[in-house]
């Protein structure tokens, strides 16, 4: 484990115990270190425990075996240092876009006008100007995820934990959101842990792709991605295709097993 890591996962195992049915070993002996400002994708078929790992780091589930440390301190519950974005947006439906984005700022105890100013800045950052007073039920899927992203970014977390954030969006919107997330990450570098089952998405965004195997969830391989993302044609290059093929080869067996 590197001493400079921001997120350290050491030999974590986790058993999922449903109210009915038998217990399932969701994670087995998983170790991972993520450096500050690194963009890491957790890739694997459904049921490989990648979301469980994210929830453990987020502090939503108790660490039963092994240890998870954030900047050296064991995780003890959720906190605003780790911003979370969920697949189904998790916006508060009774709050407008503005009030959703303001929520974390209220909890920080900021003055009202400072809350408004910062909420407005992040709403504009994600391109939702003009929709401040809309309720989530009045927005499209892509707009909902933009609002959720603004809400998370507004409290300026050091780390972003993203659980298949674009999985519920159509292909065009997903592609746009990927480009925007990448641009935001470049402007305000944060540590990003990005869970996905989409190989292209992982290669497109991450500096490092962690491939997980299913049942029990283990880390199968780690692949570094060094692409020149400033080049707009990079995603149609042979280099990009080769990386996707390499990782797809690693994932395919797992995906077949998971069926």
């Amino acid at each position: 484990m590197s001493g400079s890591a921001q997120i350290t996962v050491e030999s974590v195992s986790h058993t999922y115990r449903p109210a009915r049915g038998r217990a399932v070993l969701a994670l087995e002996e998983v170790s991972l270190a993520v450096a500050p400002r690194e963009f890491v994708a957790l890739l694997g078929p459904s049921g490989c425990g990648k979301s469980t790992l994210l929830y453990l780091i987020g502090g939503f589930l108790p660490v039963e075996q092994g240890a998870i440390r954030i900047e050296g301190a064991p995780v003890a519950g959720p906190g605003p240092d780790r911003g979370v974005v969920f697949q189904h947006f998790a916006l508060f439906p009774w709050r407008t876009v503005r009030a959703n984005v303001r929520y974390g700022l209220e909890k920080l105890g900021l003055a009202r006008d400072e809350q408004e100013r910062r909420a407005q800045a992040y709403i504009e950052l994600v391109g939702l100007k003009g929709f401040e007073d809309s309720y989530p039920s009045q927005l499209s899927g892509g707009m909902k995820q933009r609002a959720a992203l603004a809400r998370t970014l507004a409290v300026d977390p050091k780390m972003l934990l993203m659980d298949e954030p674009f999985g519920a969006l159509d292909a065009q919107t997903r592609s746009l959101m990927q480009a925007e997330l990448y641009a935001i990450w470049q402007r305000t570098p944060k540590t990003v842990l990005f869970v996905t089952h989409d190989v292209q998405e992982a290669v497109r965004l991450a500096q490092r792709v962690v491939v997980m195997s299913a049942r029990p969830g283990k880390i199968k391989a780690t692949v570094d991605i060094a692409l020149d993302r400033a080049d707009p044609h990079i995603y149609r290059s042979a280099e990009f295709a080769a990386k996707v093929d390499e990782i797809w080869g690693l994932v395919r067996d797992e995906a077949l097993k998971a069926q």
């Binding site: 502090g59 939503f60 959720p78 605003p80 911003g83 998790a90 974390g104 809400r151 998370t152």
Partner: peptide, 14 residues
């Protein structure tokens, strides 16, 4: 009540 709503609020400092 959706679990993710509760978790969102917790991670935003509630």
């Amino acid at each position: 009540c959706e679990q993710a709503l509760v978790w969102s609020a917790r991670s935003l400092g509630a």
